[in-house]
């Protein structure tokens, strides 16, 4: 019997795991953005002394996990599982980061939805009594993603208006069966929703229907209204996707106009930083959760937050073969109180 299952896709955590530590590292461009005062570490150089961007991404993730563990007053021996992912083929940056850490490791791939995916799996492992402390981490890097998914850096192309800018950085959250909150209360696992978008420069539109599906499912399963939360935050839908979510949710009878925004919209200054439709990448949502959101929750500005990273699960090969882009969104509800 799935005793903790609530409705169609939601899990209600009986012993809500607590966020005990978090850390965020970002690249120079993100460090000039509107959230610059919230990030724990801003790199001056996105190679960070490495000789390739892939190695730099790996180092960023590794250091982020280490610093999150340190900040929580823990040691890596005390971490039962590391659940990590990124965007690069075969998630090598995560695996090379885990190579240095000697923590039992699950590599997960959910494209840009990986942060809430790893938080969901980690929270369930803790609530199930399988672990006490779990590190959930993701990374992304503009220069590794750009060459894998788009064009070489020195190629003189014009970015489309709907294109988004991959965030360079990493976010790590340590969740625990002990701790004083904030607590992970609900998890709504998303289904793949494919609205038939084939343009890889228009990811916000490709992922928005998945975000809408998961949101509606979360509200139906839990019986909560959007106004229950102080903040509903999607991962990297950008300006185009955010607009679509607000518009289509309204048509379905949910008003998101007051307390909903998107990490991709918040992380860059559109007019100053020329990022077109906003930020994207695993680290887009991860760095915002692990800086702005958790810090403001600690201050009490927010007490109930719904985090929902969104992913576009295509590859360059599937795009070349004419496949449309499958979208996914996983929601994690975090509240300052346990009850």
């Amino acid at each position: 019997m799935a005793l903790k299952k609530l409705g169609a896709q939601t899990t209600k955590l009986e012993n809500p795991p607590s966020v005990v530590s978090y850390y965020s590292i970002v690249g120079p461009k993100e460090g000039e953005g509107p959230l610059k005062d919230y990030f724990d570490l801003i790199l001056e150089d996105d190679l960070w002394g490495q000789d390739s961007w892939e190695k730099a991404e790996s180092k960023i993730q590794e250091e982020c996990i280490k610093l999150a563990i340190d900040k929580g007053g823990l040691s890596s021996e005390g971490i039962d599982y590391l659940i990590a992912g990124d965007l690069i083929n075969q998630i090598t940056p995560s695996s090379y980061s885990a190579r240095q850490l000697a923590i039992p490791y699950y590599g997960v791939f959910g494209a840009c939805s990986t942060m809430t995916q790893s938080l969901s799996i980690g929270a369930m492992l803790i609530d199930g009594g399988f672990a006490d402390n779990i590190a959930c981490a993701v990374s992304s890097h503009f220069s590794t993603a750009e060459r894998q998914f788009r064009f070489p850096l020195e190629y003189g192309n014009q970015r489309k208006m709907s294109a988004q800018w991959t965030v360079t950085g990493a976010g790590a959250t340590i969740i625990s069966s002990f701790g004083n909150g904030p607590y992970i209360k609900h998890i709504t696992t998303g289904k793949i929703i494919d609205p038939g978008i084939t343009d890889a420069a228009n990811m916000g539109s490709a992922m928005a229907p998945a975000a809408i599906d998961t949101l509606i499912c979360h509200f139906q399963d839990t019986g909560l209204a959007p106004s229950y939360y102080d903040l509903i935050l999607s991962g990297d839908l950008g300006y185009v996707g955010k607009d679509i979510v607000i518009d289509l949710m309204k048509k379905k009878g949910y008003d998101l106009s007051k307390n909903y925004t998107d990490c991709g919209v918040e992380i860059f200054d559109k007019s100053e930083q020329d990022t077109h439709a906003g930020g994207s990448g695993c680290a887009c949502s991860a760095t915002v959760y692990n800086s702005y959101v958790f810090k403001e929750m600690a201050k009490g500005k927010y007490t109930k937050v719904l985090l929902m990273s969104t992913g576009a699960l295509h590859s360059t090969m599937s795009t070349q073969q004419g496949e449309s882009i499958p979208g996914i969104a996983h929601a994690v509800a975090i509240e300052n109180t346990k009850e």
């Binding site: 929703i193 038939g196 978008i197 185009v240």
Partner: peptide
């Protein structure tokens, strides 16, 4: 999403994307 919905969605998205 079914076929008809996908076509409607594409048209809807084209209007949303900045020119």
């Amino acid at each position: 999403m079914d076929k008809l919905n996908k076509n409607d969605y594409k048209k809807y998205v084209d209007k949303k994307v900045p020119k």
